[in-house]
Design a protein around this nucleic acid. Structure first.
Length: 564
RNA sequence: UGGGGCGUCGCCAAAUGGUAAGGCAGCGGCCUUUGGAGCCGCCAUUUGUAGGUUCGAGUCCUACCGCCCCAACCA
């Protein structure tokens, strides 16, 4: 690790942990956990939490457990758990033997509930959901005590045991903590601890007919695993008093400490589980792994390197105030990684044929090209040059504006790693569309430099027409046309803000032949265009490449500005 | 509305009573066989507002303004 990389920005959580370690709290031990619910797909927001939790453990020589929060069998399944495992591994983290499930603790949790009943701190409530809600009170008014609140311990014990035994139907009874129905903290108004669910649990099957609620399960699970710092998002702030209440009453030691931080938000995207699902089910994207999705699977398919995602998550910092990160910050991390690591290749997205009139027909010249100017060890490769080549349509203009220094009639430019060429003629069809360029080349400039020292302003990428591989290229950009699709509570639905140009498919891109043996997942830079990653949809006959991210494009900026 | 949080540059974010880091974005320039990368420079006389305490305040106090979260048998 270089000195540069080792500079981890400080944040309030790291500072807290550091202070705890220094104070000798928990004998200096640090244990965190990442607690996903196996009912959805991991996304960039989860990545931040993963990086934070595993990062803390690593930095302080501790452990980070992966714990599935599987307390609601009606919404959770093992398929999600498996995909989550795969995603976290891909992101680059390892929990060793420390894979746990909240369902591992159903028995001890049940015993804890019994103890609270015995202490007179929990009771079985016969009210149904509507009644409980009605007696909950409002933000300003206290709730009212359940008529069943004063049942005797033995009655509660009996009822709870029978709930467990499956004697009651769903919704018929719940177990609640006896705290304070007039508390201004709503989570303290006799919160539910257990509800009855008759379905099958993916791991425990039919063994239980009662399941603990989040508030009753999470803190104690942390305590059982001897978690020292239980990091969660801001909306759980109000749950902290309850988190601590259970742990204190049950005298669970050492007591874990809940610390809340602000979840990650990104412009031009959404991370709400519900909305993500709507995108998939509504057919607005091709699936959970659509390269436009902010899911880890989507980003993987898009070609985002896991190290870049980690760098991004660390780079944006951790705070306890809501924030929205600009997408450009993510792209910066992606480019930074790929610039160092991706090999360069020349591919033409929108081909324009160029005939080199003075280059002998049938002859092929093998030119040497650098694989990665940022990494000498990446070496060089040979690229075939011949009489007919393709260049990018955008690289030719018949009537060039002032700052355009690519090809135009009479002008000389460099073909990268090859020769200087001069455009001598423009061939058009009846409609006036340019169909072909006739050029001459200067054999003296082989490799790209003129012995007489003359300079050219432009350097173009190109590919030999006879040698090129035809490919499909999918150009992606942000899924939404506004910065905050998630905040459109008033006004149009988020779905109405889908960017109609988030995917452009090019069917006949021409790739450099060295890409012939590439495998899906392979990332490279198409010089002057951007970074691309080979898609699993690829076939031998027709490779498919996804654009991961464009290169920074200062010429594009100039054009945009002049349009205005 | 009761409670809990939070307001530092367009976006993130440091600064823990000692005189406003850094990154992204943006803007200039240098360099360049990628209009990429790299390099150099510019970019908060001021921390939501108004008062107060102090030799000294982004940090402490008061009031006000604004934003977020909480009334699932979800997590």
């Amino acid at each position: 690790m270089s000195a540069e990389e080792s500079i981890v920005p400080s944040n309030f959580i790291r500072n807290r942990v550091e202070a705890d370690v220094k104070d000798g709290k928990n004998a200096g031990r640090v244990a965190t956990r990442f607690p996903p619910e196996p009912n959805g797909c991991l996304h960039i927001g989860h990545a931040k939490s993963i990086v934070l939790n595993f990062g803390l453990a690593k930095e302080f020589g501790g452990t980070c457990n992966l714990r599935f929060d599987d307390t609601n069998p009606s919404t959770e399944d093992m398929e999600h758990a498996e995909s989550i495992v795969e995603d976290i591994r891909w992101l680059g983290f390892d929990w060793g033997e420390n894979l746990f499930y909240a369902s591992d603790y159903f028995e001890p949790l049940y015993q804890m509930a019994v103890r609270l009943i015995e202490m007179g701190l929990a009771f079985v409530d016969d009210q149904n959901a509507e009644e409980i809600r009605a007696n909950q009170g409002t933000l300003t008014d206290a709730g009212t005590n359940s008529p069943f609140r004063d049942r005797t311990v033995s009655e509660n014990l009996d009822l709870f045991a029978r709930m467990k035994a499956g004697e009651f139907e769903e919704g018929e009874k719940v177990l609640r903590a006896k705290i304070d129905m007039s508390s201004s903290v709503l989570t303290l108004r006799d919160p539910l601890m257990y509800r009855i669910q008759k379905g099958e649990h993916p791991r425990t099957g039919k063994a239980w007919s009662i399941y603990p609620m989040y508030d009753f399960a999470h803190g104690q699970s942390d305590a059982i695993e001897k978690i020292t710092h239980s990091v969660c998002t801001l909306e759980f702030r109000d749950h902290r008093p309850l988190y601590n209440w259970f742990i204190e009453r049950l005298e669970l030691k050492p007591a874990p400490e809940q610390i809340e931080f602000a979840r990650l938000n990104l412009t031009h995207t959404i991370t709400s589980k519900r909305k993500l699902r709507e995108l998939v089910e509504g057919g607005h994207v091709s699936g959970w792994d659509d390269p436009r999705m902010p899911t880890l699977r989507g980003m993987r398919r898009r070609g985002y390197p896991p190290a870049a995602i980690r760098d991004f998550c660390e780079g944006v910092g951790v705070a306890n105030r809501d924030s929205v990160i600009e997408l450009s910050r993510l792209e910066y991390s992606i480019r930074q990684d790929l610039n160092k690591n991706a090999t360069r290749v020349m591919s033409v997205l929108r081909p324009l044929k160029v005939v080199i009139e003075n280059f002998p027909e049938g002859e092929v010249d093998e030119l040497e090209a650098v694989n990665n100017p940022e990494d000498e060890a990446a070496g060089t490769r040979k690229v075939p040059f011949s009489r007919e080549i393709y260049i990018e349509r955008d690289d030719f203009m018949e009537e060039p504006p002032k700052k355009f220094f690519r090809l135009s009639p009479g002008r000389e430019v460099r073909l990268r790693y090859a020769f200087f060429i001069t455009c001598v003629d423009v061939v058009k069809d009846e409609s006036g569309e340019v169909t072909e360029l006739r050029c001459t080349y200067d054999p003296e400039t082989r490799g790209g430099d003129a012995p007489d020292g003359r300079k050219v302003k432009g350097t173009l990428h190109w590919v030999s027409a006879d040698h090129a591989i035809e490919a499909e290229v999918r150009l992606y950009s942000h899924l939404f046309d506004c910065e905050d699709p998630g905040e459109l509570s008033k006004g149009p639905e988020f779905i109405d803000h889908l960017n109609s140009e988030s995917l452009e498919v090019i069917e006949n891109a021409q790739l450099e032949p060295s890409l012939r043996d590439a495998e899906p997942g392979h990332s490279c830079q198409f010089e002057r265009l951007g970074y691309f990653s080979m898609d699993p949809d690829s076939t031998k006959a027709k490779p498919v490449f996804n654009r991961t991210v464009t290169l920074r494009d200062t010429w594009g900026k100039v054009l945009k500005k002049e349009k205005k």
